[in-house]
Design a protein around this nucleic acid. Structure first.
Lengths: 159, 159
DNA sequence: TTGGATGCAAAGTTTTTGCACTGTG
DNA sequence: CACAGTGCAAAAACTTTGCATCCAA
């Protein structure tokens, strides 16, 4: 954990940015909730719990900065909020998401399933891949058999 | 084209919705610009060109409706706007996107590359896949060698 | 002292909602 | 008449920006 904070500190200074207390608090919240895909608001509330003087704008600015430096990723699951997560450790892009249409949970697949596919795409479309996003939308194991809101899944008018 | 409008009309009436003139105009704009991934605003402006009396709210409501019925898809490429596209023709989910970080263009890959991967995921994670989103972010063939805004690609402070 | 960073509030974007009205069955 | 559908404007939700202030080098 301290290692990772230090690593980020170095990544920032390599680009002439400082790891201010606010930025550090934000980074720590992200690290402590790594698997949770927090929104900016989530991060703000968590940081505010520890350091009440921080402003929402600072959180946004910090997330934008970390995102520009590719330390974290922006994610969109179509619910109108941008979520953030750390990039996969090994510098390479590596993992994918399972988004449950019933309960909204986001689980992770930690394997990279796309290696061979990327090679094919790069060649076939003359496209230099920098990153990818792969999300499966469906019903998670927890919701199986107890879908609460079918309307969300297949629209229909309740008459 | 008329076929597809009729097909959509039937999908709507199957759920007790009508294909009103506004909805039809919206659908036609989407069909005429199928490969373009229009935002709600884009659709609104195009529809307004033909039927000036339409309201933006109606466009949003129509897109939401079509999306609930899974006639169209919502897409997010992280630029803050929701875009829309028709679902792949063959009822199955089938295609993927190439999003250029330099020029913002969105190209399509019309093959489904994920078949075997989905089987694996369904088994391994006990997750019932209804849909997927796969987007590669990178540099498109048009931009190769003439990247205009490297900052967007690798953040750095311009001092 | 100088410039980056911050907090607050105001403004900006995108999307949703309330409500009266319209048109068709 | 009933009621889905609509247009408009207001409101909401999320994010960015302006600006005075603060702080470390």
């Amino acid at each position: 954990m301290e290692d990772r904070v230090n690593q980020i500190k170095q990544q920032l200074s390599a680009h002439n940015y400082k790891l201010t207390p606010q930025r550090e608090a934000t980074v720590r919240v992200l690290l402590e909730n790594e698997e949770k895909h927090l929104s900016a608001e989530d991060v703000y509330l968590l940081v505010k719990g520890k350091s009440p003087e921080i402003g929402l704008a600072t959180v946004y600015r910090t997330l934008e900065l970390l995102s520009d430096l590719q330390i974290i990723h922006k994610l969109n699951f179509g619910d109108g909020v941008t979520r953030y997560e750390f990039r996969a450790e090994g510098a390479e892009h590596h993992h994918h998401h399972l988004y449950c249409l019933n309960c909204g949970a986001v689980d992770e697949i930690m394997e990279d399933l796309l290696g061979p596919i990327e090679e094919k795409v790069e060649k076939e479309f003359d496209f230099q891949i920098i990153d990818h996003r792969l999300t499966f939308h469906g019903i998670c194991h927890r919701c199986k058999g107890q879908v609460k809101d079918p309307k969300k899944l297949v629209g229909s008018k309740v008459t």
